[in-house]
Amino acid sequence: MKALQTIRSSRKLVTLVWILGLIILWECGAFYIEAVKRTPENVLPHLWQIIASVFSTKVISNGQTATQIVLTNAGATLLRAGYGFLIGMAGGFLLAILMKLSGIVEKVAFPYLMLIQMIPILGMAPIVLAITKDIGVSRIVIAAILTFYPVCTNTLAGLKSVEQEKLDLMYLCAANRYQVYWKTLIPTCIPFFFTGLKISAPMAITASILVDTLQGDGGLGCMLSQSLKHAMSIYVFWQIVFLSAFVGVASSWLMGLLERRFSPQKRLAARKGA
């Protein structure tokens, strides 16, 4: 018990050291850039400058401050990423179940899955936009496609990881197919499903931001490129960088939280730890 506590607190310590290290590294870079560049904020501003820009009340464009711009555009992008993520999650899970249920579905679907995974997202996005003619829908579609693959393949791997003996046991008890899935296959695949979710949640957000850059209709990606082109304060760019990183990490963390709540195996681990 004591050893466990030491490990836990030391893990916190490691995280702290990491963050401190990053801050120091960043600031060293910032001081250096400040010394050698004419517009250092375009390359690497000080962290306090970025923080100051968050609280700045200076109106930048359309009567909004930098923070207001970031937040309103973040809403548009992240909401679509969220929708896409949910759709991809449900679709990936269902397809995995269907592939497990039927060998034919698996044989037919698997090459398409691989194909989707191999096409670069930047190549796919303009096509989706051309078809849907709507940037919001495109964000959803792209986020869904990106979520789909990790969720589907991980869930399928989970469904296939069930020991033969458990299936034999179900068979000997004359369980029907529904019972085999509900009592054995699905509970076993839940941790795998969550692994897929943890991988794809940040990806869905990144994808959504990338889609924004295709069109000038707002969204985090759009503001990002405008800010980079000096159409508005560069600090919008820096705020977005940090916000995206934070939301990406938070999304993955949230999945971990949900896993502890909903995965039978993890729930058990939590109870034992308590």
Binding site: E163, Y171, A174, P187
Partner: peptide, 19 residues
């Protein structure tokens, strides 16, 4: 016999449901 639940099986590993 199987459909009449006449079999009980014990495996080499316990094959328990850990959750």
């Amino acid at each position: 016999a199987r459909l009449q639940k006449k079999y009980g099986m014990v495996f080499q590993s316990p094959v328990l449901y850990e959750w």
